[in-house]
């Protein structure tokens, strides 16, 4: 076989290998927005969810950027998210009351934006800002938020929706506002109104223990 033929083999072989390797399925491109999302819930294992009867929820959503509170908002999508939380809690037997009527539970809904690839430290952000959901809001000025451990779940460079349920009933005794349940939605398009509503429904659906009887 002549040298010319040998030389012809090289680019053709490389082209064949490159062509076949380009057939590799990209796992991210093969996901829809909904499939890209994670719904993560955690609970305080010592909490007896049936012992709480009432709850209060704000009518806006906290916006937290890089672990700092940057204001509260109530866009149409935010209001749908809040409505979805209210509907879920009421379907589990909890009764909504005003925050001045000694609710057993407080509910915080937050939009989190992280522009760096740091592990999100949920222990810190509740304690660091002095904004709308300052412990004063719940009538327990000076108290800290007690977060269950291991909430820095995965790295993030994007946006998340967080729903926290706070134990206000036992705060005077424990002198801390325990977060007894947290739901976190991560992934593409989490702040779309449909995505927030369906995401919140998913968070509650995977938390069947979160219920009470009046």
């Amino acid at each position: 076989m002549c040298m010319k033929r040998m030389i012809a083999w090289i680019p053709l072989t490389v082209a064949a290998l490159v062509t076949v390797s380009s057939c590799t399925k990209d796992p991210i491109k093969n996901l829809s927005d909904e499939e890209s999302r994670l719904y993560i819930t955690n609970r305080d294992s010592s909490a007896n969810f049936a012992s709480y009867k009432t709850y209060s929820i704000a009518d806006s959503v906290a916006v937290i950027e890089n672990n700092s509170f940057s204001g509260d908002q109530a866009t149409a999508a935010d209001q749908q998210a809040l409505a979805a939380v209210r509907a879920a809690l009421e379907s589990r037997g909890y009764v909504r009351v005003g925050r001045n009527q000694s609710p057993d539970l407080g509910v915080n809904v937050s939009r989190l934006y992280n522009t760096t690839t740091n592990v999100v430290d949920l222990n810190n952000y509740w304690n660091d800002y002095g904004g709308y959901y300052d412990p004063y809001y719940w009538g327990y000025g000076g108290y800290g938020y007690g977060y269950p451990s291991a909430y820095g779940l995965v790295q993030s460079t994007e946006a998340m929706l967080s729903v926290d349920i706070l134990d206000l009933k036992n705060a005077p005794v424990s002198r801390t506002i325990r977060v007894i349940w947290n739901g976190l939605i991560r992934g593409s398009g989490v702040f779309g109104s449909d995505a927030m509503t369906s995401g919140i429904q998913a968070l509650f659906a995977q938390s069947p223990y979160l219920k009470t009887v009046q």
């Binding site: 290998l17 076949v20 390797s21 057939c23 590799t24 399925k25 990209d26 796992p27 093969n30 996901l31 499939e35 890209s36 994670l38 719904y39 993560i40 819930t41 955690n42 609970r43 294992s45 451990s149 291991a150 779940l153 998913a202 995977q206 938390s207």
Partner: peptide, 28 residues
């Protein structure tokens, strides 16, 4: 060269810290 890929339907996973995570899992 061989490329293996599989995507599994959404299901609930128990994480080591006790969290529950609902996810679509895929291997490449």
């Amino acid at each position: 060269f061989q490329d293996f890929y599989q995507k599994y339907p959404r299901q609930l996973y128990k994480l080591s810290d006790g969290s529950d995570m609902s996810a679509v899992r895929s291997f490449s």
